[in-house]
Simulated assay, not measured.
Amino acid sequence: MTLLHAFVRDEFAKMKQLVIPVKIVPVQFEEIGKTWNTTVQVPAETWNIAFAEAERRFEEVQPDVYYELDTQAKIALEVRYAHAVEEAKVEKLRRVVSMCAEFDVSDLPAAGIGSVDFERLLSDPARWKWLLNGRIAWETTRLKEELRWKNSSWRLKARPISIPNVLTKAAVKLKKAESRLPWARLQLAKLKAEKTDPTESMHWLGAQDKVDRVAVACAALGFAPTALSDFFNQSLEGKNVWAVGHHPYSWQVVLFMKFGIGYKQFSGHTAADWMLIAMPDRTEMENGSKSTNGFTRTAAALQIYFLNLEVQGMLDSDKTQPLENRTFKPRFSRTSELREFLAVTVQ
Rank of each mutant, 00 (worst) to 15 (best):
E286I: 01
Q312G: 04
N308E: 02
N287I: 01
T298G: 00
Q252F: 12
E284K: 14
F259K: 04
G294D: 03
A272Y: 00
I261A: 10
G313I: 08
A272E: 01
A271G: 09
K290D: 02
V244R: 00
K258H: 13
Q252I: 08
F223A: 11
N308H: 02
R213K: 14
G262C: 11
S289G: 03
I277M: 13
D281H: 12
L255R: 06
A271T: 03
A219Y: 01
G313Q: 13
D230H: 14
F306T: 01
Q265I: 08
G294N: 11
S250K: 05
H247K: 11
V253M: 13
A207L: 12
L236C: 10
D281L: 10
V214L: 13
T296Y: 02
A299Y: 00
A224M: 13
A207C: 10
S229E: 11
Q303Y: 02
L307C: 08
E286D: 15
F306G: 00
A300W: 03
F259R: 05
T292I: 13
S235E: 14
F259W: 10
V244M: 10
A215Y: 08
V214Y: 13
K239N: 15
L221G: 08
K210D: 13
F266M: 01
N308L: 07
L276H: 08
M257I: 02
L307T: 04
D230P: 09
F223P: 04
Q252T: 03
L255S: 13
K290R: 14
G268F: 01
D281R: 09
W251K: 09
F256Y: 15
Q234M: 15
F266N: 01
K258E: 15
G313C: 07
K258L: 03
I304L: 04
T226P: 04
Y305H: 10
R213S: 09
F231T: 10
F256I: 01
S235D: 14
